[in-house]
Design a protein around this nucleic acid. Sequence first.
DNA 1: CATGAATGAGTTTTCATTCAT
DNA 2: TATGAATGAAAACTCATTCAT
Lengths: 197, 197, 197, 197
Amino acid sequence: MNIHSTMVAPHDSEKAEAILAAALELFVERGFHGTSVPSVAERAGVAAGTIYHYFASKEALVNALYSRWKGVIGRHIVDSFPATAPLREQFRAVWMGMAEFAIDHPKELAFLEFHHHASYLDDEARAAENRVFEFGVGVVQLAQTAQSLKPAPAALLLEFANGAFLGVFRAALAGRLPLTRETFALAEPCAWEAVRA
Amino acid sequence: MNIHSTMVAPHDSEKAEAILAAALELFVERGFHGTSVPSVAERAGVAAGTIYHYFASKEALVNALYSRWKGVIGRHIVDSFPATAPLREQFRAVWMGMAEFAIDHPKELAFLEFHHHASYLDDEARAAENRVFEFGVGVVQLAQTAQSLKPAPAALLLEFANGAFLGVFRAALAGRLPLTRETFALAEPCAWEAVRA
Amino acid sequence: MNIHSTMVAPHDSEKAEAILAAALELFVERGFHGTSVPSVAERAGVAAGTIYHYFASKEALVNALYSRWKGVIGRHIVDSFPATAPLREQFRAVWMGMAEFAIDHPKELAFLEFHHHASYLDDEARAAENRVFEFGVGVVQLAQTAQSLKPAPAALLLEFANGAFLGVFRAALAGRLPLTRETFALAEPCAWEAVRA
Amino acid sequence: MNIHSTMVAPHDSEKAEAILAAALELFVERGFHGTSVPSVAERAGVAAGTIYHYFASKEALVNALYSRWKGVIGRHIVDSFPATAPLREQFRAVWMGMAEFAIDHPKELAFLEFHHHASYLDDEARAAENRVFEFGVGVVQLAQTAQSLKPAPAALLLEFANGAFLGVFRAALAGRLPLTRETFALAEPCAWEAVRA
DNA sequence: CATGAATGAGTTTTCATTCAT
DNA sequence: TATGAATGAAAACTCATTCAT
């Protein structure tokens, strides 16, 4: 359940990591087009040209970030899924697993959400996206077969719950709710009641 | 309940309207920083300079759009709120009122969501934002006093339900769900169960 | 025979002409890759951005220059060709026509020669190139049929004479020969003896 | 007459030779300013930094190439000059000596021609240039004294013949003529007739 | 000797904005 | 009111050169 156990292998170079970290922050703060490469370089403490040693372009940089963190969160959820536990427990595990990630990596989660749909994402980044979604749909459909969840379309329940989670998360990011385990723990029963049969 | 009854007074000029419409589309497609003023001019069928007759700057343009549509959706919700109906009915009315807006004005709603937090929004735009939120908190707190809703923080319930709605909406925009009244009608009981006591 | 009678229609704008003139000079002085767009702007007396009003890119600029002047010189030669005169007279006319162009437009001719083979030339520019060459080959072959010229391959005679002309021209440009009508008039009988039967 | 007998002393290091060879090719293909140092390094199979162990700068590299090959071709012509043969034979020897060089070292000759006039050539490179020219002028003037050549300025005849040779060579490089001994042998009588009295 | 990461000035190009017409 | 040519600052990106290893 500890996010660090599912950490992606760090890039070989410290500079590359500094660039990735700086870019992540700035992309969240100002968006992709609103972030200049020199501003990333400055925050990373490297020269502008150095960024092009590690990333072919600004697009390559945002895609590297997206693929990396989508992979991390995806593995985190899948790994922490208690396959043999009862559905109620599974639901709580997934919800609180996401909560853990949100609390430990709020910028990373915000980044993933802001760039969800962006035209500059490449196929690999989109694939990472879809893998997580497919996993969710599978689980929901299984539970529906057992009549444990509402008989609405699986995608609807999934998007609903995911949206609810992100709604709470975004409010927490904006300071309208505390970004704590308790906040998500309070929201979890709401989510469960929303989808249960 | 008809969205057009709450339509904002149109700008005097047809050109200004064309500019606003073109800008809205492009801001949704490419974001604020990804949209150039000349591209707005081209889509609006006017010269680039003309935009500056109606709007002081690109920022003024995005703020005009934001304030206008945040006002429209806010008034739509408040106007269609059945103040004397039972809570269950009120909830449905608000949810389906938002659904109506989402279906009739998907680009406008997407625009509002994408620019929610943006640094280039001015105080007036942010105020429109807050007015809707305050209204919601008030209603929720009233209902909680009557023990009709879960005793969680009012903001939490509000953000949860709003997030769930937007989750469904975004999935519909992306084509993963049909953008229809039925989709939202199916999600509405989920949302109610999530927040009811 | 006056080069100005075959002048290409000038671009509508004075600025565009200033840009073309400045670019021509700099491309001759420093080559395509050695010439920066700001340096062209400075010599033309316009802002750097203005260049992109008239030309889509630096490549488009060099191609516009190439097509224009290749067309001018091609038309100049073809127009001044005395189709009914005896061959000896035709040869002199072509040679001295080129000499006239070289003297009146040394920079333009140097530009054309320097960029002859360049990878950044587009199809239109290359087509202008070939049209002149085809015309020459046709004339040579006709003369060979009449046994007035040496029986070597037509292309060989053409490239030989053209090379000789350019050799004299380049020496004149470099100051090793005077860039005058007399210089070319002295070289003309040499060229004729080289190719005559 | 064998070009290899007049080969310049090779640079001590194999790497330096690889760098020179790679640079020569790239300078011919893309020009000096169009060729990046990293691209030279890549084609030479060395690291970019290694180039700076052998050459102080990109300019030093192009000058080393120019001086080397201008020296080689100069010595080749002078060495193969049959000082006691009749003029007709001397002319043929020089022409076909150049032809031999052109066929054996087309890239090297093209390189020398493309960079003839370039601003980044240093004095030594220019001196090598002039030595060959002076030799030619001397020979021509001697022959003119004997009334064996036309009484035009010596430089004119020299530039004419050199230009003609290069015209044929460039056409051969571009594939418009075969790059063979026969091509140059066919052109030789033309050149002789051009300059003879 | 050799490497290649790192630099930062310089390149081409875009674009928000102004202003003469 | 409307235009679009013109601007120049800033963007993404390249590259000659240096230097620690």
